[in-house]
């Protein structure tokens, strides 16, 4: 399980999530940041600091394609 960054990040990309991530698994890919689902330790620190509520737990994403995309970006299939 992992947290995923939704498109709400686009246009803000405030990046305090990157500074609180204890394992540095959040990467800036240009228009938004993304979470490496393999490295993520599920601590949720990023969710608490996101000013635009862009980060959700994969089990709570409204749109399953967001989760699929988050995994695919790292060459993985969503579980």
């Amino acid at each position: 399980m992992t947290f995923v960054v939704t498109s709400r990040c686009v246009g803000t990309k405030e990046t305090s999530c990157m500074s609180v991530c204890p394992v540095d698994c959040i990467h800036d890919i240009g228009e938004q940041v993304v979470i490496d689902p393999v490295e993520c330790v599920d601590c949720g620190a990023c969710v608490d600091v996101c000013p635009v509520d862009a980060i959700v737990h994969e089990g709570e994403a409204d749109d399953p394609s967001v989760v699929a995309d988050a995994y695919r970006r790292f060459g993985l299939e969503a579980p």
């Binding site: 609180v20 991530c21 204890p22 620190a45």
Partner: peptide, 8 residues
Amino acid sequence: GVIGTNKA
């Protein structure tokens, strides 16, 4: 703070 707070 959380664990990652210690980075900054």
